[in-house]
């Protein structure tokens, strides 16, 4: 291992140490305290099932659910037929989504996947405790669904493994899969994005967590090249990390811009402006 490698590794170890202070999976008090606005419209923390090898609801899970809540009117207006969570972990997010869209009744059906077999069981437990049904599948991202489900999913939610780690940590089974994100924390994210793009319906939206280290602006740029508009729904800074909840949807105007100019849009392109204003408004506030 070269000196550069070990520097990278210690940076990673530092990151992991930071992560475990912000969101300790083993030693600190395990249950986050939900904000009061959250409680009626989301899964109830005491009813969320748990397992030592499964990621418990943390700051990132709460940020994603808070962002979904803030976008609830749009979600209801969308009248999604199929909603999907990739990487459902404890089931807190998919259960919360189903609760906040309860009034759509059986017009909306839910699917959830996770690569961790303990997670799919835990998700079943959480769903059951809330009297909600989703079909849960143990699989890598959406493997097995990509052909027949193409273009059919209206809402996708993802809190991916986003922590920068050595590449070798990808593929480790159990709880490590909940954070290990490889180079820049992007390795799993960069496999999720194309798979999700294939599944999204014309009116479909993706809600995804990203960390500052994942280069959220770069992710938006990449999605923009594929014809997706983007918005930062929420930014939350803890002492250790800055979390973003990004929303993506297909936008014909965006895709014509991108293809007509023959290059990726410049930083002053209009697609970026909502993002930029968010950046300026909130970026330096904490």
């Amino acid at each position: 291992m070269s000196a550069g490698d070990s520097a990278a590794v210690s940076a990673v170890e530092g990151k992991l140490a930071e992560l475990s202070t912000s969101c300790d999976l083993r030693t600190l008090p395990r249950r986050g305290k939900p904000a009061s606005a959250r409680t009626l419209n989301t899964a109830q923390i005491p009813l969320v099932a748990s397992h030592p090898e499964v990621y418990e609801p943390c700051d990132d899970s709460f940020a994603l659910v808070d962002a979904l809540l803030s976008d609830k009117a749009q979600l209801l207006a969308l009248q999604p037929s199929l909603c999907l969570e990739v990487g459902c972990g404890s089931g807190y997010v998919i259960t919360s989504l189903a609760i906040m869209l309860r009034q759509l009744g059986s017009g909306t059906q839910y699917l959830a996947t996770d690569i961790n077999q303990h997670a799919v069981e835990t998700t079943q437990g959480t769903l059951g405790a809330h009297g909600i049904h989703a079909d849960v599948i143990a699989t890598d991202i959406v493997s097995g669904l990509e052909k027949r489900l193409a273009g059919m999913v209206d809402v996708v939610v993802v809190n991916p493994p986003y922590v920068p780690t050595p590449e070798e940590e990808i593929g480790i089974k159990g709880i490590a899969a909940s954070w290990a994100g490889g180079l820049n924390g992007r390795q799993v994210i960069d496999r999720i994005l194309p798979a999700v793009r294939e599944l999204l319906s014309e009116k479909g939206c993706l809600y995804m967590i990203a960390l500052e280290d994942n280069d959220p602006l770069g992710i938006c740029h990449l999605m923009n090249e594929k014809g997706f508009a983007s918005r930062v729904l929420l930014k939350r800074c803890t002492e250790e990390e800055s979390l973003y909840v990004l929303k993506f949807w297909q936008d014909a105007a965006v895709s014509t811009n991108a293809s007509q100019s023959g290059k990726s849009p410049g930083s002053d392109s209009s697609w970026l402006s909502p993002f930029r204003s968010f950046w300026h408004k909130n970026g330096s506030s904490s």
Binding site: E121, Q124, A138, T139, D140, G144
Partner: peptide, 14 residues
Amino acid sequence: LKGVPNMLLHEDEV
């Protein structure tokens, strides 16, 4: 198992 289909593959099946 317990209502969950397991589509996970072994390394040589991927």
